[in-house]
């Protein structure tokens, strides 16, 4: 860390006093140009969060009503069976999505790291799904997973009559459909991050281990993967961000159905605040969600990054 404020004054000291004012301005400039971004983030995040929190304490239905009625909406929320389903779905979806993405991403990265010809083209194809809107992903997978149309029908037509794949319409399995589509979309991205990490590893280290007679799987397990820990961390952060904000995918793929079997907290909140005229309840669910994220993710973020001594 080369701190420029330490070298600037020494330059300024060598100059006439008249320059001082502009130097002081130069010292302030970074703060001035940073300010708009900080203020915008501050207002956009905290301002609206407080607003939502206040709404959740009211009895608002279709329009906001500023009459505070206490925490009744929260009590209603936790008695709501549909909310329970949504939270459970988010946990299943989040955990599976992140795990499977990480595993597939690492494997793809190792595969691409084997000096394949046309690696650039392959990389782009692996990343393509990430460049596509969740709305389109939902559409494409709705077709593939639809029992009457996609995989199941194709296999039936080929003579595998007993093959059954009805997850999309099966309330117990529909959340796994979300996982499949989301993994398809994001694993290429995880691959790209790990590929970059693999390229950063000192090849001499691997060579030395090879000379010592270590097998390739062992080298990956003992040397390569441990040194990719920071990449695991960044990938985890971005994947959990994607998992939390998965709204459009659910809307396009299942619409929350069948029934409300594939609801996530985001779709729950949307349904209540906007289509069912329960703004207070919706706001309460949003606050619980925010609270959950703050409680779980943010401490992890800070502890990981604070400990790191780079940059």
């Amino acid at each position: 860390m080369n701190n420029p404020s330490a070298s600037l004054p020494s330059v300024a000291a060598a100059r006439p006093a008249a320059r001082r004012l502009s130097d002081r301005f130069a010292d302030w400039l970074p703060k001035i140009v940073l300010a708009p971004t900080v203020v915008i983030t501050l207002v956009a995040v905290y301002g609206y969060m407080i607003w939502t929190a206040l709404l959740s304490l009211t009895n608002s239905r279709i329009l906001p009503v500023w009459k505070f009625t206490g925490t009744g909406q929260y009590a209603k929320l936790f008695e709501n069976e549909r909310w329970g389903v949504a939270v459970e779905n988010l946990i299943i979806f989040g955990v599976l999505f992140i795990l499977v993405c990480l595993v597939i991403g690492v494997l793809l990265a190792i595969l691409l790291d084997q000096k394949i010809r046309a690696e650039g083209a392959l990389r782009t194809i692996y990343l393509y799904p990430m460049a596509i809107s969740f709305i389109v992903t939902g559409t494409a997978w709705k077709w593939l997973l639809n029992p009457g149309l996609g995989l199941e029908k194709t296999l039936h037509d080929w003579g595998f009559e007993s093959f059954s794949f009805d997850w999309l319409v099966n309330p117990d399995m529909v959340v796994y459909c979300l996982v499949i589509a989301a993994v398809w979309q994001s694993s290429g991205f995880v691959m790209a991050m790990f590929l970059a990490g693999l390229r950063g590893i000192d090849p001499d280290m691997v060579k030395a281990a090879q000379l010592d007679g270590a097998s390739m799987p062992k080298i990956y397990r003992r040397i390569v993967l441990p040194s990719l820990k920071p990449v695991f961390f960044s990938a985890f952060v971005i994947l959990s961000h994607i998992a939390i904000k998965s709204f459009d995918l659910v809307m396009a793929l299942t619409g929350g159905g069948p029934g409300y079997a594939s609801d996530l907290p985001a779709t729950f909140m949307y349904q209540h605040a906007f289509t069912r005229g329960q703004m207070g309840l919706g706001a309460a669910s949003a606050i619980v969600m925010l609270g959950g994220v703050l409680a779980i993710l943010v401490p992890y973020l800070y502890s990981e990054l604070r400990g790191k001594k780079h940059g």
């Binding site: 969060m49 607003w51 939502t52 709404l55 939390i244 949307y270 925010l290 993710l297 943010v298």
Partner: peptide, 20 residues
């Protein structure tokens, strides 16, 4: 500051949908 800005991306957008 940077961490804090990034951490705001972790918050679900539905949380601010109603006020916006």
């Amino acid at each position: 500051t940077l961490l804090w800005m990034l951490s705001t991306k972790m918050l679900p957008p539905v949380g601010v949908l109603v006020p916006i």
